[in-house]
Write a protein that binds this DNA or RNA. Structure first.
Lengths: 227, 227
DNA sequence: GCATAAGCGATAGTATTACTATTATAATTG
DNA sequence: CAATTATAATAGTAATACTATCGCTTATGC
């Protein structure tokens, strides 16, 4: 699939509560973002430290701390970036499609598949970022500070994505009681299933790299909505 | 619901790869387990340390290290205990029920609701433990060491639960392609939805403490199987 | 019932992590 | 070109996640 966003020069703007200093405002900031994505992808978020990142980019830890309070804040930034980018992608994939069923089908596909092509939006490698989101993003909101961060608006982008797809669900079945539950189940579920397929295959039925995750959630949703 | 397991004096046996020294074999070991459950429940797994636990039970850290290599191992033990206990519960809830639909319905209910009554099996507070599982258990398998621990068998109990319910699914629809995906989606999904309802309500449709999570997943499963 | 071993508490110590602070130099901006 | 701001270099601290030692106590085995 040719990606329409390619070379469109779209700017992903991230709210200021998600950083101390905007990483998009300097060369060092952009270096922090794209190298952190590679490093987290490589060694996992738990083993990731600002010290290691500093070594990788040949800058002292203290410089990184000017952009983000700690590695958790950085993860919040990355997830927010991802969901903002996903929102654009969803808009592109569904625009000009008349049938709400077809739109939902395309949205589910986009949400349940990991990204395989770098759209080269901004300075971010979206292929690696999507891998990080799939496997580490729960760690962004499964903390004791969720409520506080939620109040500050750190999860706005994710919520907008869920809301957008929920609206699509209600177009198809306006009586449906659980649009948000359904959508968040699909998103989180597909992340889990991919992880299971790679690490705990007894918990899933995926043959690596087939389309069963997308097929499963697509069928699940439409059976539920059109019973 | 009167709980049949109450006062049955059932022993939950945990495989030896899940501890260095069996906590069930000494008073200190049992103290470690039930106090760790309370402490993790209170301050969350991330803030939990062996030092704090040691202070709570008036024992040095080093004594706790004799039972578990680190706090991650302890969490693995607790999750394994929980799934072993859940397996027994599932057996009880479904035994003597002829209809596979009714058995599945009861299993889903048991898997999607957090425990409200302590069955007083062994030395463990199952109400608090189930809260920990719902909110922290992803952290037990979302690590770089999953594969190694999986090989050792640390997730056997969880897999048995998924397998048991999957078999029930196949009884109802032997052609169904994704029994494990369906069951693990229900389990992980209900955990997420409960968490969302408490912290990120925009991602769900739950009114606190209603039965919507159980209703949602029950409907979802049966619509999918009986389309 | 006595010897042996195992379990535990008390204490000390180390490497790593997650920061904070200070200052000099380099780059930007007005 | 002056003023501001960003960065690098360095140092330092408190907490975490352990490991090691040792002496006392309590089981267990004969």
């Amino acid at each position: 699939m040719a990606n329409l966003m390619h070379n469109l020069n779209i700017q992903i703007e991230i709210d200021s509560e998600l950083y101390s200093k905007n990483p998009d405002s300097s060369a060092l900031g952009r270096k922090i973002i794209n190298n952190s994505i590679e490093l987290i992808y490589e060694i996992g978020f738990d083993a990731f430290t600002f010290k290691k990142l500093g070594t990788l980019i040949s800058s002292p830890e203290s410089s990184i701390y000017r952009y983000f309070d700690n590695k958790h804040s950085l993860l919040l930034y990355l997830t927010s970036w991802y969901w903002t980018w996903t929102e654009y992608q969803l808009a592109f994939v569904t625009t000009n499609i008349v049938s709400p069923q077809e739109r939902l089908k395309r949205s589910i596909k986009m949400l349940t598949k990991s990204v395989v092509e770098d759209t080269a939006v901004s300075f971010v490698n979206e292929v690696l970022l999507s891998e990080i989101i799939f496997s580490e993003s729960i760690k962004a909101y499964h903390t004791k500070s969720v409520d506080e961060e939620n109040k500050k608006g750190c999860f706005r982008a994710y919520k907008r994505v869920v809301q957008r797809v929920s609206d699509n669900v209600l177009e198809i079945n306006p009586e449906f009681l659980y649009p948000h539950m359904l959508v968040s189940t699909v998103i989180e579920g597909s992340h889990h299933q991919k992880y299971f397929s790679e690490h705990l295959p007894a918990l899933t039925d995926v043959k690596k790299n087939d389309n069963s995750i997308t097929n499963f959630y697509t069928e699940m949703v439409f059976n539920f909505l059109e019973k």
